[in-house]
Nucleic acid binder design. Sequence first.
DNA 1: CTGAGATCCTGGGGGC
DNA 2: TGCCCCCAGGATCTCA
Length: 268
Amino acid sequence: MPELPEVETIVRGLARAVSGRRIAEVRVEMAGSVVNDLPGDFAETLRGERIESVTRRAKFVVMRLGSGRALTVHLRMTGRLIVEAQPQEDAYSRLRLRFEDGGWLRFSDVRRFGRVRLTADGAWAAGLGPEPLDPAFTPEALRGLLEGRRTPIKSLLLDQSRLAGVGNIYACEALYLAGIHPKRRAGGLSKARVERLHAALIRVLGRAIRMRGSSIDDYVDAEGLRGGFQNTLAVYGREGLSCRRCHAPIKRVTLAQRGTFYCPRCQR
DNA sequence: CTGAGATCCTGGGGGC
DNA sequence: TGCCCCCAGGATCTCA
């Protein structure tokens, strides 16, 4: 479900809502959804901790705890983190936290791919490529990532160990914006094309964050609000519809087992 | 190391 | 209505 802009939106909401609050009660409602890297029981270990900060790394939500430990969440496809005054009925609820001064945080996940992990230092969110919105991510940095790679550029953009945070929607959208065909070999892109892709990634991610993410199916942020970027998508989910720029019908192919949308005229 | 494919799950939508 | 198949915002593991 969520990619960088959605996770960023959730994190901003969570940072406002739960920073500085102490966990009074932990309810594990599906054991398989939580992982404990620390000795002892998950709920016991987490209870009493204060959430110091909430930040994002790639698609991970990282909550730093008072002890220095970290509670890290990956939402995968259908995970949600919802802040609420009272615990809501939810058949897909996996974990609930109650705060000392009232209010709850609920982790819910229909497809059960998501994970909440308690670690000594948040190391779960490691081994990732650079953040595309970090100033250190320059066109030259992107060129370095692509160099010598024979894989299609779309596949490389989805590889979190190369570039962190981009998922299927924004990979498709960025390639459209840059006018690059998703199947082009990553290492074969000209310098000018790499520069266009770099600019497109930053523009599309920034715009999506400003619109609070894309709610294509059921994504909502920590406050339960839908995003707005789905209305602006140029290619993702628009198979057969006309390109907003040239009016050619948008095509869909499968690449690395993922639906891939592009304009056959604008993207070469 | 690289790249391709299967796999983990559940639910929604379309075709018949 | 019901059934079957395909599809889904992700990452990880195995295999060649």
